Simulated scan of single mutants.
Amino acid sequence: MESNARKLMAGALIKRIVAFSCLIVSGCTPPSLYYWGEYEDMIYQMYSEPGSADPATQIAKLREDIGIASESGNQIPPGLHAHLGYMYYLQGDTQSAFLEFAAEKQLFPESAIFIDGLMSRIKE
C-alpha cells in the first residue's frame, strides 16, 4: 500500500515538473525578428495553387503588412520587397517594381546580385 502511494506521489510530482518546465520554456521564446504577416502564406498559396492569388490582391496585402510592421516597429522580412516588386512588374508598373527592388537591396545588401539580375532582365 505504502509503495503504491509513493508511486502516485512521484508521478504527480513528475507531471508538475514537466508542466512547469513547459511553461518556462514557452515563455522564453524570443520574438520574431521580422513581421511576416501574410507573406509566407501568400507565397505558398501562389505556388501551390497557381492563379489563386492575383497580383493586385498580393500588392494590397503586402502593402498592408509593410504598414503594420512599420507601426509596430518590426522589420520587413527578406524577399518581401522583391516579391512586391515582382507583383508590380506583373501589372506593368515597372517604376514601382524598381522602387521595391531598390528597397530590397537597401534592406538586404546580400540580395544585390539577384536583384540586379532581375532589374537587368526587366530593362531589356
Rank of each mutant, 00 (worst) to 15 (best):
D93V: 00
D41L: 13
Q45D: 01
P30E: 13
L118C: 08
F20K: 04
D65M: 06
G85D: 11
Y35R: 01
A53M: 12
I115Q: 01
I66G: 02
V25T: 01
L90F: 11
T94L: 09
R6Q: 09
A69P: 00
L118R: 08
G51M: 10
G37Q: 02
C28V: 07
E110N: 05
Y47T: 07
S48P: 02
P55T: 14
I122P: 00
A12W: 05
E100T: 05
I14E: 09
S32H: 08
I59M: 09
E100D: 05
I68H: 03
K61V: 12
G11Y: 15
S3W: 15
A5H: 03
F114L: 09
I113H: 12
I122V: 11
R16F: 15
M42K: 01
I59D: 06
Q58A: 08
T57G: 05
R63E: 11
E64W: 15
Y86N: 02
K123E: 07
A10V: 14
Q75H: 14
Y34E: 06
C22T: 06
P78I: 10
S72I: 09
L84G: 01
G11E: 07
C22Q: 11
S3V: 12
Y39C: 02
G67R: 04
L90W: 11
I115E: 00
P50F: 14
Q91W: 13
A103W: 09
E40I: 12
Y39W: 12
G37V: 04
L33K: 09
S21T: 12
S111F: 12
L118E: 09
I66P: 00
E104H: 04
R121D: 07
I76A: 02
L33V: 14
I68K: 04
M119K: 00
P31K: 08
H83K: 06
A69D: 03
S96R: 07
Q106K: 13
Q45V: 03
Y89K: 04
Q75I: 04
T29V: 15
K61W: 15
K15C: 13
P78K: 14
F101C: 01
A19D: 07
Y47L: 08
I76T: 07
D54R: 14
G27C: 05
N74C: 09
G85Y: 10
S111M: 14
A69K: 02
V25R: 01
Q45W: 04
K105F: 06
G27M: 06
R63D: 06
S48I: 10
E100K: 07
I59N: 00
Y39V: 02
R63V: 12
L118S: 03
D116E: 13
N4F: 15
E64N: 13
A103K: 06
P30V: 15
S72W: 14
K7H: 09
G85N: 10
E124Y: 10
A97F: 11
A19L: 14
R63Q: 14
S72K: 06
L80G: 04
Q75T: 06
H81W: 13
